[in-house]
Design a protein around this nucleic acid. Structure first.
Lengths: 265, 265
DNA sequence: CATTCTAAG
DNA sequence: CTTAAAATG
């Protein structure tokens, strides 16, 4: 059994003050993929920089206070790689992967974007570069007889069922036709499986992100943008999935909820 | 009797959340000179933007969130003037004056500065422009048979007795020889009186500012940089002076304390 | 609406 | 150490 959690922490320093530390102490996960750490190593409290019982692999962004991904693993990885061979993005704190026995686990933080801005152009460049890498990653892993799961904040809701207000968001970044089509290519061309959707084909959501603005959380006006994208064999071994939505607005320590999948080994 | 208070609020929005509002409700002052308001009018809660029983004259800086002075008067001023005829400083939220019967009261926020920076150059330019204005102001007032008091944060401690650690601060902005000499000229050349010092010639302080850094407040490592500079006749009418140091670190609503003087009329 | 950085103090 | 803005999400 391998339990993998992914969660965008929206600033690990802030999250650590609001409940991330006890959450970490109680989780049953074997691997945790973090996004939006937004800190240098030495800015983090020691309980999260080097948590007891975990191996921590941090990939901060070159720009202070931005992005940043990490992997927490209960056992030491056989290998760790930061970035995916992109001159533009490898120092931007958006991708890290680790080899564990039989499986490569990655933490991805895809750029956010907003229509008509440079950020959206950046998001599109990332998508264009990252899709071929997914294909390559899957090929290398297959040659090695290993499975792959790329977890993280993909910043795109795939289908209408993946966000509460899909009608109002058809021209919004995160639910644009071209972004949705790109996610379809991740599945159909690169050959990954959306593990949570595969386990729960017909439910709305389960959402994993609610804006801090307005009453989005209380109205459950959420988006499903945090995914486990796994190679088919690993996906077929998924036993259960769970989105850990906080009980109330003020018990949250991030605007995202942890998304956990348990895989049979 | 005319009671005048001056206080640098270090952000009136923050101060309003921490105790400025009840302080204002209970003060016996007739005129309050505020510095470092750091807000536009419409960013302020209505209880301070238009407090009941007061006339409020705000002179915000053109730069958002910076400087800003104001006058609160229990009666409506006969006239109000923003700035002192300086192309550089009249829109910088550093000076406002109001005519009340027999007396002109001004709120001044002299630039802060730091040795070796552009800010210090700015402070020096302000000083160079402001001294002649003080002379002019006094002359016009005399011709009109009125007194003058320029209250505010002058950002200079005059003598060794005006700050706790004068030895360690001899090369620090706020206690440089040239700044101290300039304050002497305000007294000797422009002919103003330092009202609080005149009433209390021999005491240490009373300090009106304690840095937020370190334990400055608890150690009373303060500076006397907030002054009532009055024309001699008005100064001679000062009956008592009072610096309202907070009872404890966390009952403060600013790093400065209100400095209040009661004048006989 | 929240996090972090920066400039300023 | 604190305020407030700005950029980002």
């Amino acid at each position: 059994m391998l339990t993998v959690t992914t969660v965008n922490v929206n600033g690990l320093r802030a999250a650590s003050k609001k409940g991330f530390v006890p959450w970490l102490a109680e989780t049953a996960a074997d691997v945790i993929c973090l996004q939006e750490v937004r800190a240098e190593l030495d800015q983090l409290p020691v309980e999260v920089r080097a948590p007891e019982g975990w191996f921590a692999t941090y990939a901060p962004a070159a720009a202070k206070g931005r992005a940043g991904v990490a992997l927490l693993t209960r056992r030491e990885p056989d290998a760790v790689r930061v970035g995916f061979g992109s001159a533009e993005f490898d120092t931007s704190g958006r991708y890290v992967e680790a080899d564990l026995p039989g499986v490569t686990v990655a933490s991805l933080y895809l750029p956010s974007g907003e229509v008509g801005t440079d950020r959206q152009d950046e998001k599109e460049r990332f998508m264009a570069e990252f899709l071929p890498y997914l294909v390559e990653l899957k090929g290398k892993a297959a040659a090695d007889g290993r499975e792959v799961v790329v977890c993280g904040d993909w910043n795109i809701a795939h289908q209408e069922v993946d966000l509460k207000n899909w009608k109002a968001n058809q021209k919004k970044a995160g639910f644009l036709p071209e972004e949705r089509a790109w996610l379809t290519r991740v599945l159909d061309e690169a050959g990954y499986r959306d593990v949570v959707r595969t386990l729960h084909p017909d439910v709305a959501g389960p959402y994993s992100w609610w804006s801090y603005r307005g009453k989005a959380f209380d109205n459950d006006a959420g988006w499903r943008i945090d995914y486990h994208m796994a190679t088919p064999t690993l996906a077929s071994r998924a036993l259960k999935a769970y989105v850990e939505r906080a009980e109330s607005y003020d018990r949250r320590w991030s605007d995202h909820a942890p998304v956990t999948v348990t895989y049979e080994q």
